[in-house]
């Protein structure tokens, strides 16, 4: 491959790139800027202020946002934890279980939810809950989140596991460890970056989810995305921009962290 500047020198390539980036990020930047607007208007700049951030925590909508935030974070925490545990066992079986029947099928089943349009999953889950007569509320959101978080947790974990040769467990067993000890003392610590990265990814996917949540939540139970959506329907107020900016910042931090952790190489 040729090196240097020539590599991406197709005509119009740069222009296209910048156009795409602009379309993607311009709205976000505007939301971020106007969240610091002192004015009540969302289109005219009235000077810098943090009043909308204060408003989120103390304003008339603060109670609604606080309970939505509590729901969002507690669901994300529990869903990510459970999904990570399930994903870890699944990865163990897939990577260390040797060749079993329907291995390829199992792989498909684990990862399919990523490919299926979210709206389809949402409707399916809704029908499922209705069929078994489950009352919609906090629990239905939690169960749905666990389900769709599994493949997201699974991917970094199995990627990590595939990079760990079986010889480490063999070495542990050779040194008198039984299967359990070999897993706990040797394999698990080596998998930790993958597990942590999978957890963070699942956490953020749960935190950001709107479509499925909107379908399966009961009346009166809101998460941050559904609460924001609810507020916007009654007109956009700058406090929405403030809360969106905070959510955006938080997501960015978590995703970055997840990426950094997944790069820690403990096999060398």
């Amino acid at each position: 491959m040729r090196t240097g500047a020539a590599r991406f020198d197709f005509p119009g390539f740069k222009v296209m790139t910048f156009l795409c980036l602009f379309i993607l990020y311009a709205p976000l930047v505007i939301v971020m800027i106007y969240s610091f607007n002192d004015s009540r208007s969302i289109t005219t700049w009235g000077g810098f202020s943090l009043r909308w951030y204060v408003d989120v925590f103390t304003g008339p909508d603060s109670a609604k946002f606080k309970s939505a935030a509590f729901n969002s974070f507690s669901i994300a925490l529990i869903a990510a934890t459970v999904a990570t545990a399930i994903a870890t066992s699944a990865a163990l079986a897939m990577v260390r279980g040797g060749r079993f029947k329907l291995r390829t099928a199992t792989f498909g089943v684990i990862n399919l939810p990523i490919l299926v349009p979210e709206i389809v999953t949402a409707v399916a889950i809704l029908i499922f809950f209705n069929t078994i007569g489950f009352t919609r509320g906090y629990m239905t959101i939690l169960v749905a989140h666990i389900a769709f978080c599994i493949p997201f947790a699974y991917l970094p974990i199995s990627a990590r596991m595939q990079g760990i040769e079986g010889v480490y467990e063999q070495a542990a067993m050779d040194l008198y460890a039984d299967r359990k000890q070999a897993f706990r003392r040797v394999l698990l610590p080596m998998m930790m970056p993958g597990i942590f990265s999978g957890f963070l990814l699942a956490f953020i996917i749960s935190l950001d989810d709107f479509i499925i949540t909107n379908f399966v939540k009961g009346a009166g139970v809101e998460t941050l995305p559904t609460a924001i959506f609810g507020s916007v329907k009654q007109g956009i107020r700058p406090n929405i921009m403030a809360i969106s900016t905070m959510l955006l910042a938080f997501s960015t931090v978590i995703v970055t962290l997840s990426w950094l952790v997944s790069r820690i190489d403990r096999t060398k």
Partner: peptide, 13 residues
């Protein structure tokens, strides 16, 4: 009986 593995297989953690 113990083994010295070809690529050592030292526990990296």
């Amino acid at each position: 009986i113990n083994t010295v593995f070809q690529n050592y297989a030292l526990f990296p953690t």
